[in-house]
Design a protein around this nucleic acid. Sequence first.
RNA 1: GCCCGGGUGGCGGAAGCGGCAGACGCAACGGACUUAAAAUCCGUUGGGCCGAAAGGCCUGUGCGGGUUCGAAUCCCGCCCCGGGCACCA
Length: 818
Amino acid sequence: MPEKPYDHNRIELKWCERWRDGSLFRAEDHSTKPKYYLLEMLPYPSGTLHVGHIRNYTIGDTLARYKWMRGYNVLHPMGWDAFGLPAENAAIANQRHPREWTLENIAYMKRQHVRYGFSYDWTREISTCEPEYYRWNQWFFLKMLERGLAYRAKALVNWCPACATVLANEQVVNGCCWRHEDTPVEQRALEQWFLRITAYAEELLRDLDKLEGGWPERVLTMQRNWIGRSEGAEIDFRLVGSGKPIRVFTTRLDTIYGATCVILAPEHPLAEELVPPQEQARLKAMIDERARRDPGDLVKEGLFTGHFAVNPYNGEAIPVWIGNFVLMGYGTGAIMAVPAHDERDFEFCTRYGIPVRPVIRPVDGKLPDPAAMQGAFTEDGICENSGEFSGLPSAEARRRMTEKAERECFGKAAVTYRLRDWGISRQRYWGTPIPVIHCAECGIVPVPEHELPVVLPLNVQITGRGRSPLETVPEFVNAPCPRCRRPARRETDTMDTFIDSSWYFYRYCDPHNRQAPFDPQKIAYWFPIDQYIGGVEHAILHLIYARFFTKVMRDLGLVKNDEPAARLFTQGMVIKDGAKMSKSKGNVVSADETAERYGADTARLFVLFAAPPEKDVDWQDAGVEGMYRFLGRVYRFVTRNVDRLGQAASGEETEADRRVRRRLHQTIRKVTEDFETRWHFNTSIAAIMELVNELHASEAELSPPVLAEVLEKLVLLMGPFAPYVAEEMWEELGRAGPVFRQSWPSYDPELAREELAEVVLQVNGRVRSRLLVPFGVPREELERQALADDKIRSYIAGKAVAKVIVVPDKLVNVVLKG
RNA sequence: GCCCGGGUGGCGGAAGCGGCAGACGCAACGGACUUAAAAUCCGUUGGGCCGAAAGGCCUGUGCGGGUUCGAAUCCCGCCCCGGGCACCA
């Protein structure tokens, strides 16, 4: 039969049509098969997919298809992170309603997903902007409110002038907004809703150990740093005169005999009281300057209050300062400055002429000379000039000093975290309404559960300026107080959209439940997520919130697992012309055009082949052509050989039969190993290409039964990578699909084994010759043969052999004297 | 500044463990097919040198040292690139 041309559009559209409804990929909620929950981070429906998105989903889809073939009951869902600011911005720019804009994007992007053949169970699709979904955001909020995990407080919060809303700490990057990288974040004092994530700080930190091995070390480290646990002590310094305590936090209590001043954050409650009238203006200036928070280059500045406070250990009265580098939000907002042993204190104190007093010496050295010090000595050592603690090593001193503080009631051991509570109020429209009502009589009253969802009204004016858009909708704002029924006002802020993505993966297990966010039994079956896949940019934000939600849900009795995802994989980006693909850079390669021109299979193959999935890849059109050529080559080979397959074997098995079959079994072994270990699909695909090259070279000599075996297994191997052309070839071979429901081919180690070992012969470590021998030749025999080799002998001639290194089946190295 | 990654041909990358560096693909070049081109197929391709050729020699994995019979791989010291954290007391 003549070969058929590789018409990717014909093939792909044919199978795409048959797979369209997604019922093929449906996961069973109960099954005798082992379950596998595979999840890719849900996308924001920004408009259209580019090949960068394609890469993320291709990695997941390849794995999903492999797991199906290994006999798993695979849950592979997809949904939409549909609330968020871009919809509002689009609304302002094009006079479109955010909902309309969002739904249109979702419809378009879903078509693109389907076009690429991704194996999602679309019956479980969710969209976070639908009341059926966000009502459970509100429900969780009420549960947290009941438990004191949600609270309202006036606090200094991060304000992005470009977004015209508040940001969580996690959303501030280098002092700027995470969405507006050159817009500095301002500090404003506002009444806000917070979730008490700090209540779980210790557990969030501790449980990172459980994720060891399953999550990238890098992500675990980032989370550990973000939580930022430090152990130390809180100590009271009493003001001379009033006796009022100033509580400081320190991790270096062992250095306290070297404290030469106390420094308060400008926002510290005592600051205004202590600063003399003529300096109040400077204090205000300091606070304002920091509110504008120019990242990095803040010069350490201070001002002396004129007051003194007493070091409880040595009774010394030391000056109290205000310092712009002391943070109100960390520890107690006040520090003791020990310039001899802390770099920042050193810089501050030398600037203002405050004495430097060393009290720690290196274990094997002398106490530093303060006059000669160029910087602080910050390591642990031995205490000196520290009263009863002199001579103790730092760690021991800290322990004993803490005991003394507790005994004499002027301080205690303390642990502080860098992690802050999660500010979730947003002064925006397109988000989940916070379900509370402000009543003049009753105060803040939660909306009763049976009244959920509080539906986001659709008739709203969005200007992007001023206050929360919902304030302009009287039908929404005016509501009776659930408690006293008198007229009251609804909360008009909406929730941070990171709430939506903190629990969506539970909803996939039971997406149509109207009574509850989900049925706990279904969760018990599917959880934890076996493999979560997403970008490393969410290492802190989304992934710490998701872990927090899981712990809260566990404490509510809804789930049994402590962690949402057993394994996390962070894939690299797709780079074009040296930059991440983005509309603003104008370097976007459209998923549609690529599918049209080369086909989804080619695009999928290329993004997998170009680099291992954890690394960034460069998009190069020329490279894509290569993948297209490869698929065409395979397809044509199969179609022109189909007729031969049924023929009987004509006599003996040929040398080519053995060689190609050996290569086949080696390839299955290689690809299987890649799936089971590192996911280096670039090497899997290279191995398949080598098999195909071997097939081409031996095409005429292959006997029909071997050819049939090789083609069948080749198609199965290609199934996870290039599902369309694999399905078409499977049909050409006369087999019934779908490919991803066939069993993954197994390999026979005997057939995969090479017949002869190639042993490299070296002289002084340089390859000079080689030997083909059966496997398992003993060392002595290898050595004998090596020394008998003509080439080797010519190198040895006239010289003495010092020794011979033999690595069986691999190498003989003859080392010469001199 | 601190903490992680990473530097291999013209390019993307390969070489789980210290044992043939450069698999596979791209690009380039040569050839076949074609009136011609495209497509396809076959071949060459790290650099340098010797040779008419077969072939041979030297050199080579960011730089400098070290360990070893043998180093892209291990150790020490640097340089460069990417990412994270950055007054967290």
